[in-house]
């Protein structure tokens, strides 16, 4: 929005901006060390997923090399990354497209 300033020749430019809170993805990456049962257990413990959902995500990590295990606000995503890494899982955080 552009508003003329009557008292001078200067134009004051203001903009109304609404930024959507971009969601962030928490991603677990595969490694040859962590046991499949352990990864499932960690996903259940941290996110409260039931065993079936946690096992599906674990298999994605195992077969595809990575899995998006959670999507949401950055602050909470960072918390989950910390929790997953505390359980020694390689984890990253990416903006959702």
């Amino acid at each position: 929005m552009t508003m003329p300033d009557d008292s001078s020749d200067t134009l004051t430019l203001t903009r109304d901006k609404t930024a959507l809170d971009v969601p962030w993805k928490v991603i677990v990456h595969d490694d040859p060390v962590n046991l499949m049962g352990y990864v499932t257990w960690v996903l259940m413990k941290i996110f409260g997923y039931d065993e079936k959902k946690a096992a599906v995500l674990m298999m994605q990590v195992h077969k595809l090399g990575r899995s998006i295990v959670w999507t949401g606000q950055r602050e909470k995503a960072e918390f989950y990354v910390q929790q997953l890494q505390a359980h020694q899982l390689k984890t990253s955080l990416e903006k959702a497209e």
Binding site: V81, K90, T91, L93
Partner: peptide, 15 residues
Amino acid sequence: RLGEFITDEAVMLDW
């Protein structure tokens, strides 16, 4: 080593 896949610079600094 656990954060080797973090690529976002701002996230990396906080991390």
